[in-house]
Design a protein around this nucleic acid. Structure first.
Lengths: 172, 172
DNA sequence: CTGCTATCTTGTCAATGGAAAGATGAGTCG
DNA sequence: CGACTCATCTTTCCATTGACAAGATAGCAG
């Protein structure tokens, strides 16, 4: 291990996402992340500024991943909803941080851009604003409740589909 | 101010809910709460054990308040949904903590009881399990997105109603 | 070879959560 | 009244943390 890590930024965001997924954002320790990455406790500050900076990077990555997932799902509202839920379950660390403004630098330029990218991916799927908000709300609510354990079952998608379908009644 | 505060437990949960609402659960400091209450920094430990204990008490109070709000809303699914959203907006500190298991003592007896009380208030409103989950998901999702700033507007209820109605199409 | 700059380290500080041990006072029972 | 008991609160202490300041290192351009 040389003096320079080489890819510290990426390693830190990955480790942070994992740690948040496992023990929540509150238990995240910058020093622990540094230990995992094998660098000194002050190294993260150079790349991220402070703790909120690390989580902002994670959230930004999350919004980008979400936008990609939504685009891959295509124009179908139900498919988009399932993609949304699947993203949340597959990336719980990112998801936990993305919608908690108190943890982030909410005015970060990169974050805002990534937010708008996924917002754009969401818009246009529904006929009007209310329908769009409704679809977003069901998917987001189901994902949140599933992650918190309030709703549980053997398979996420199987549980989510009938719920999402009720909001976006597509044939088939 | 005597040696005994007299109502420390209630004062602490109230102060904690306010602090969480203002700056998020991560920024909550037990010592700050103690200062606000005018007691030593170790006093809270006696009543709540640790930080998670304080937040567990807040969450328990939240579930109780939610159950009451839902019961007052009656049998109408739309009214219940609006009551749910209104609760979240009126008690953001409680709401922020209730569904984040990583902050709580999830196996606390009082918490579980309060959870089930509000779950019971939710059940029975919808014809089947999927409808119930769907209603819960929209209300929860909308409330979360509104609190995070992802959805905004001049009036919460006015914004929530058309969204909730799409899920629970009641006449009138 | 000589700077230049991003990257990382070491040293330090106040604040925090939590544990241990002791002080206080309210109520109970003789 | 007086002693006992117990919940409540304080004082003291420690390891950990986030953040800052100043210095060390290395890759890279000239």
């Amino acid at each position: 291990m040389s003096y320079h890590h080489g890819d510290l930024r990426r390693a830190m965001t990955a480790a942070a996402a994992t740690a948040v997924a496992e023990r929540g954002p509150a238990a995240l320790s910058l020093r622990e992340l540094a230990r995992i990455a094998g660098v000194s406790h002050a190294a993260p500050a150079h790349h991220f500024g402070d703790k909120a900076g690390v989580l902002t990077a994670v959230a930004t990555e999350g919004y980008t991943l979400l936008a990609e997932a939504l685009q891959e799902a295509g124009d179908d509202l139900l498919a988009a909803g399932i993609a949304y839920v699947r993203f949340a379950v597959d990336h719980p660390g990112h998801f936990a941080v993305m919608f908690d403004r108190s943890l982030l630098h909410a005015d970060d330029a990169g974050l805002r851009a990534a937010e708008q990218a996924s917002a754009a991916a969401l818009a246009g799927l529904a006929p009007d604003a209310d329908a769009s908000r409704a679809a977003w709300s069901v998917a987001h609510g189901f994902a949140s409740l599933w992650l918190s354990g309030a709703i549980s079952g053997p398979d996420v998608v199987a549980a989510a589909e009938p719920v999402l379908r009720r909001m976006a009644p597509t044939p088939g």
